[in-house]
């Protein structure tokens, strides 16, 4: 659509503008409105680039996208189905594959739900209260984003590993954290922590504390205020954060790779299994798992777009439009 309009000459577009405006508006006010539309279209032309340049820029962006995003996606699905549909589903039905899918879902469920709670609490504290050390806390929340995932995993090895700080104590009590589900969950929680908090803080800061104060002055308790006023106001932002958090939790490779131990059928998540199968030249099986992750990405993208629209709609708070 946008590439099409860029070929139309300014004059033709101006006319198109005016005629749609005429059609849309009842006769008496039609002339006035179309005049305004014409002015708007004319001033827009002054500000925009000439046609050929626009074409080159758009073409560049599109070809870049095709090479780096669309092509790899196509390759993933093509390779997954290269031996036919039956081979694809057979690869997914392997016990190892099923175990990896289950583990990934379990880890994602644990880390997303915990980060949901922690993220809301952190965002609430930062956005609604003033306290010393607030900037420090915001920086801390961002830490997982700035640290390499491998380091994030290594931290847990240093803490819980056989030679780590608490290693001997854990061994003595027969508690398995490293190379087991708890370790994978911990590493994933660490890596995905910023998503929920980060998507909520700006939203909550913008909304301020007045509605909460109103609720409290009307006799609501703290919990009532949270569930009846705060939560409904942030629900779309919260879902947005949860969605991104979930996508990262399921796709995390680096940190999980360090703490998992790669025990087949036990501590391999989907991304880890993709690598193992690929290294063993089982391309169909490897890309079949990869295709599931790619589908997750596509679904995430669609839901994200919908949520962003909802967020934009919710962003016209009362009081702004007078």
């Amino acid at each position: 659509m946008s590439t099409q309009t860029s070929f139309v000459t300014p004059a033709a577009r101006l006319q198109a503008y005016a005629s749609t405006a005429d059609l849309a508006v009842s006769p008496p006010s039609a002339r006035k409105v179309s005049d305004r539309a014409r002015q708007a279209a004319a001033s827009r032309d002054l500000r925009s680039e000439p046609g050929p340049i626009r074409f080159i820029i758009i073409a560049l962006a599109l070809s870049f996208l095709t090479i780096f995003v669309v092509l790899p996606l196509v390759v993933v699905f093509a390779s997954a189905f290269s031996k036919g549909i039956n081979a694809y589903f057979a690869a997914l039905a392997e016990p190892e594959a099923l175990s990896a899918i289950k583990l990934t879902l379990l880890v994602a469920a644990i880390s997303v739900s915990l980060n949901l709670v922690f993220g809301v609490i952190a965002a609430w504290a930062i956005a609604k209260f003033d306290f010393s050390g607030k900037t420090f806390l915001i920086t801390l929340i961002d830490l997982p984003f700035s640290v390499s995932p491998v380091i994030s995993g290594l931290v847990f090895v240093l803490l819980f590993g056989a030679q780590g700080y608490w290693g001997t104590w854990l061994q003595a009590h027969d508690i398995h954290i490293l190379f087991a589900v708890p370790g994978i969950a911990l590493a994933t929680i660490f890596v995905t922590f910023p998503f929920v908090a980060r998507s909520l803080i700006p939203l909550m800061q913008e909304q301020g504390t007045q509605e909460e104060e109103a609720a409290i002055s009307l006799g609501a308790s703290g919990l009532q205020t949270f569930f009846r006023v705060t939560l409904p106001n942030i629900k779309w932002g919260l879902l947005y954060g949860v969605l991104l958090c979930n996508a990262r939790a399921m796709g995390e490779f680096g940190a999980v790779s360090v703490v998992s131990g790669h025990i087949r059928g036990e501590t391999n998540t989907m991304p880890l299994l993709v690598e193992i199968l690929y290294n063993e030249y089982q391309f169909v099986a490897s890309f079949a798992i990869a295709s599931l992750l790619a589908m997750l990405a596509l679904i995430t993208l669609v839901v994200k777009t919908v949520l962003e629209q909802r967020l934009d709609e919710g962003q016209t708070p009362e009081g702004r439009s007078e």
Binding site: A214, I216, S217, G219
Partner: peptide, 20 residues
Amino acid sequence: HGASERHVGFVFQHYALFRH
């Protein structure tokens, strides 16, 4: 007593109506 126990009606400059 906290604000919720004082039984005081408060009207805010920017209304603070619950937008949802």
